[in-house]
């Protein structure tokens, strides 16, 4: 007999223990739980340890910048998502935590699922979310002396690293095609000749 629970039943159990947790649904009707950052460690332990839930596997932990993202409602937060799977019950769940971009702090779950150690370092490296309580929070992909967090939408592209220019002659980053959410281009008359290289 299958012991897998549907999302509604899982959400019911979590919300009865932690009323601050909200059940949400994305535009493509995928359900997820919005967890306040302060409650995350307790919710994670509940999900891992409750006999009917037993989310023993953190399949993925990732994040993204909601600025310029076609989200409803519009937001400028950094989203951190946890994809959980239960090998015991064969059910799964998505958690999300919203961190304000100026003080992005989320409690670490590396004490609950050890694999979160590297995942959180990646999110920290690329999005600048500080995971409090992480045993070794340092960059994992970019070099240790890298400046900035490259997957933030307001990331300023560096001109050079280690004395090596990022672009070859005649290239500049402003040529990027417009993305969703970009402001409309200024009228051509207002924009005279473009400087060859934007000052940092």
């Amino acid at each position: 007999m299958s012991t897998a629970l549907a999302f509604a039943a899982i959400a019911e159990q979590v919300k009865s223990a932690h009323p601050s947790v909200e059940a949400r649904e994305s535009d493509n009707r995928q359900p997820w739980l919005l967890v306040p950052a302060a409650d995350l460690p307790a919710v994670a332990r509940l999900l891992r340890d409750a006999p009917a839930l037993r989310f023993d596997s953190l399949a993925d932990l990732t994040g993204w910048d909601l600025a310029k993202f076609p989200a409803t409602p519009p937001s400028t937060d950094i989203a951190v998502a946890y994809y959980l799977h239960s090998l015991a019950h064969r059910h799964h769940l998505t958690l999300k935590v919203m961190a304000p971009r100026d003080a992005a702090q989320v409690p670490s779950v590396s004490g609950v699922w050890a694999v979160a150690n590297y995942f959180e370092r990646e999110v920290y490296d690329l999005l600048g979310v500080a995971f409090t309580g992480h045993p070794n929070l340092k960059r994992i992909m970019c070099p240790d002396d890298w400046i900035g967090h490259p997957l933030r939408k307001d990331y300023v592209y560096p001109q050079a690293y280690n004395g090596i220019a990022h672009l070859r002659d005649g290239q500049h980053f402003e040529d990027a095609p417009p993305r969703v959410g970009d402001p409309p281009p200024a009228p051509a008359a207002a924009a005279p000749a473009k400087p060859p290289v934007k000052s940092a």
Binding site: C142, I164, L167, R168, Q171, F173, A176
Partner: peptide
């Protein structure tokens, strides 16, 4: 070569 911040040229 053009849009990456991390790849050596």
């Amino acid at each position: 070569s053009k849009w990456s911040y991390s790849v050596l040229n």
